[in-house]
Design a protein around this nucleic acid. Structure first.
Lengths: 345, 345
DNA sequence: TTGAAAGCGGTACCAC
DNA sequence: GTGGTACCGCTTTCAA
């Protein structure tokens, strides 16, 4: 079998259209790009020829010569395309960039730090005009050459390490503090905190918010109530089960991420304690209101975070060269029942 | 303010690397593409120069001249990137295509039929090597020229209309029949069916499966129990509430899509009937097992559907020119409680 | 082993 | 209004 491409009829080029319309190639270019100074009849002939050949302009070739080799493409790296949070970020980015003619090359880390650099490298080879990144590795100094070259890079959800760059993140400290304070307001003093990997600023900031709330209430910090590096719902379920079975169990639980919340819910239900032990989640879940009790949470707006990141990128693309800034997207507390269970006395 | 691009230091080209390494440009190309017939010392000089300049090869320019102008890019259109189902499909596609060097341009329809053609057109302009599409418009004859040109196109989740092309879909008829038969086996004879827009084959096939199960059991079809064109959870909630309040209400409900299921759950709970009226869902939901009762469902595997679509595309890309085929991905029935509520007698 | 020249499919610039 | 020609950054071809 020979090369498959050779068996296919070749795609028409501008030259083919020009020949059929009996005009110069430059005139075809003018017509198809809606440039001025073409007579109506000539334009009509060109459009007819293009339609007959089913010609579609080749923007890849065009962009090669065009202004500064812009490709009108941006690269988006998210934690995992299958995670609803990532999907919302993607949607927000799309909302903002598509109307401006940008396409989005999307890829996911799959929770694999190795992939981060590989994906970015692939995007650079494709000469994307900008990058929107959710990172997983600890630092991003490998991006320094690109940054100094002026490539717009915006981080979303997680702040970059080792470099100064734009970022859009949720109010991790404030949200966690609010959630914890909410539990304290309902009389709890022994509050467990379950969080993600400590290489992620999202996780460390949420734990920091938790501690801040304790401190403000004058409650002593008990490290045995805090478990970090939880990477799955199952691991969380086991961790919570262990806490509940301990000598001095918590009366409330703060789960600092959506998968972790699922594990926490499972553990409480397995122990039959879902109406006894309070639960506050960081991030919302579908059907969280249909559970009994409903799951109280502080929630971010990932779609708006994606949109904010897209807007920041557009601004940079348009020449904004102000100092890098971090935008903090607010969180909202939603009370549904699980967070309002009072502490026993 | 002048054009921002002009203020940025220009990105180095192969010529810059060649000059610094004092070799010809073709030698740089050979080294960076790991082609044979280059001396070790020359290769070392080139690598050093490339590293000094932070040079990254421009695959866009390269692909312009390279074999058949392949761009190593595929376009993916999904229903909505923010929908977990779409995210899973995306993940499956990525799993298969990335190891083969393809990048994925992803875009979502946002439930807007208008967007479908615009997005496809944009992908064609970018000369993607293939297309994986979840469609929303009723027919896709506009793709005929591309199909006859040999562009690989694989439909996923929903079958194409008016054209013969590869497709990967769930077992909509079989899954719906199984779900309905499950309810019948628990004594139900008045089973409501709530489904999506009738322009979608997924919706019509699921209703067909529902009817097939009734027929097999010798139950007469009652059109008043079937509501189609439900586009949201809220609309479904209202529709179910109306059915429950009618003179001869259903004893069981089959919700034929995940958003519709959410509406159904809300309606049953609002009426306090979640333990009286049985519910079977098409597609699973996060936390469906944590509800009381747990939500029984037939579930597809969207990630595997995405992967199957990716594999079909790879085969076409490799020259497979067999007749278009439709792959049916099986469904699994998961019993959790809501589907096993017996009919009153 | 190496490199000069042509060309991929368009756009920029400048004559006509 | 129209079109020729150089050229974007790379690969291909072919000669040295």
């Amino acid at each position: 079998m020979s090369t498959p491409q050779q068996m296919r009829p070749p795609r028409p080029t501008m030259r083919d259209v020009a020949a059929l319309a009996r005009v110069g190639i430059k005139t075809v270019s003018r017509v198809l790009n809606s440039e001025p100074n073409v007579s109506r009849e000539t334009a009509a002939r060109v459009h007819l020829a293009a339609a007959q050949l089913n010609y579609e302009i080749n923007s890849v070739a065009g962009n090669l010569r065009r202004s500064g080799q812009a490709t009108k493409t941006v690269g988006l790296v998210v934690g995992h395309v299958a995670n609803p949070f990532s999907g919302q970020v993607h949607a927000g980015v799309e909302d903002v960039l598509y109307p401006h003619g940008y396409s989005v090359l999307a890829a996911s880390l799959d929770d694999d730090p190795e992939r981060e650099q590989r994906l970015v490298r692939e995007f650079l080879r494709r000469r994307v005009d900008g990058l929107i990144l959710t990172t997983i590795s600890h630092e991003q100094t490998y991006l320094l050459p690109e940054l100094s070259r002026g490539l717009p890079i915006v981080f979303v959800d997680r702040e970059p390490g080792g470099i100064a760059a734009d970022a859009v993140v949720g109010d991790n400290v404030g949200g966690a503090r609010g959630a914890t304070a909410h539990l304290i307001a309902h009389g709890h003093r022994r509050i467990a905190c379950l969080a993600d990997r400590e290489t992620l600023t999202t996780a460390t900031h949420r734990v920091a918010g938790y501690r801040a709330a304790l401190e403000e209430a004058g409650i002593e910090y008990d490290p045995s109530l805090v478990t970090m590096n939880l990477a799955s719902a199952d691991a969380t379920c086991a961790a919570v089960a262990a806490l509940l079975g301990s000598a001095n169990p918590p009366t409330a639980v703060f789960t600092a991420q959506n998968l972790i919340t699922i594990g926490g819910i499972r553990a409480l239900r397995a122990a039959g304690l879902q109406h006894k032990v309070a639960l506050m989640s960081f991030d919302d879940l579908v059907l969280a209101d249909a559970l009994d009790p409903g799951i109280s949470c502080v929630t971010q707006d990932p779609r708006s975070m994606g949109a904010l990141a897209g807007e920041k990128l557009l601004a940079r693309l348009a020449g904004d060269d102000s100092a890098p800034s971090t935008t903090i997207s607010p969180t909202t507390l939603i009370a549904r029942g699980s967070g309002e269970i009072a502490a026993p006395r």
